[in-house]
């Protein structure tokens, strides 16, 4: 356990500079400083040109055969194991309690958000996160109640993958991780980074008998995420023709949306000119 943690940690240090050197930028449109995430308006001919090459999403999947294999295995694991557990969780534990569990987990992840706020240089956000954590941990009884949101300090998700992106690191190839599902090279390292920032993991790391706690939390986190996203996943499963491609696009778009922070990328959509 200890050695694993050390490897993860070193990996992070090695990775960060290589990431900066090998900027394989799949997200060139977020480079425009004035309007991050926005593609400038184009006329019909230009749009046609842009639509010509295969879109970045498919282009960015050199490991597609392997990814499809992992996706397939994950699918089987979901149907025979995780979906059953998550159905049981939703069935047995009442909504109110599940919500509490979600809030506690989110509160425990707040220190990781804080580290990422600081690494991104977003000091205003860092202050909000710190306030959220302090208020919810005390007045909110260890995060059971999300008092901060009621005080108008809403939760803002951050992770090390997003931090790497804010440092100018491209997404790298799309990856499907065993059990965890859609990701890419940058976000995989991001996960490792977040793992190493987490004070609870440090606490578990230095006292081996606490390791079970760390695993247990990860398991509940997966369960919570599945229960939370069950509606959108079911919708995708029902309506998709190629589920793999849909999840790939959905993940890529979702991450780009989070990287762009503001909801400005709304011009790459169908347009009246398309009709001609």
């Amino acid at each position: 356990m200890k050695s694993l943690g050390t490897v993860f940690f070193l990996f992070n240090f090695v990775f960060s500079p290589t990431c900066l050197l090998a900027q394989q930028d799949a997200l060139s449109y977020i480079d425009n400083e004035l309007h991050p995430g926005q593609i400038e308006h184009m006329d019909a001919a230009e749009r046609q040109e842009v639509l010509e090459p295969p879109s970045a999403v498919e282009d960015n999947d050199p490991l597609e055969p392997i990814n499809r294999g992992v996706f397939w295995v994950n699918d089987i694991l979901d149907t025979i194991l995780f979906d059953r557990i998550s159905e049981m969780y939703v069935g047995i534990v009442p909504e109110f309690l599940r919500e509490r569990v979600g809030y506690v987990l989110r509160n425990l992840s707040e220190p990781i958000v804080l580290v990422n706020n600081v690494l991104q240089g977003e000091m205003g956000d860092a202050e909000d996160t710190l306030r959220r954590f302090l208020i919810n941990s005390t007045v909110g009884v260890g995060g059971v109640f999300d008092v901060s949101t009621d005080l108008n300090i809403p939760y803002k998700r951050e992770d090390f993958g997003l931090t790497l992106a804010s440092w100018g690191c491209g997404s790298g190839p799309y990856l499907v991780l065993p059990i965890l599902g859609p990701s890419n090279l940058r976000d995989t390292f991001g996960r490792i980074g977040d793992y190493s920032f987490d004070p609870i993991n440090w606490w578990a790391y230095f006292s081996d008998d606490k390791a079970a706690y760390s695993y247990g939390r990860t398991a509940i986190q997966i369960l919570d995420a599945k229960a939370e996203n069950i509606a959108i996943i079911e919708d995708l499963n029902k309506n998709a023709i190629d589920r793999y491609a849909t999840f790939r696009s959905w993940y890529t778009e979702r991450r780009n949306h989070l990287i762009a922070k503001e909801d400005v990328k709304a011009t790459d959509t169908p347009h009246p000119d398309d009709e001609e």
Binding site: S55, V57, A240, I241, D242, A245, T246, R248, S249, T269
Partner: peptide, 10 residues
């Protein structure tokens, strides 16, 4: 955009 990506894969 999601559908374009999916359809192009198909």
């Amino acid at each position: 955009v999601t559908q374009r990506s999916e359809f192009s894969a198909v």
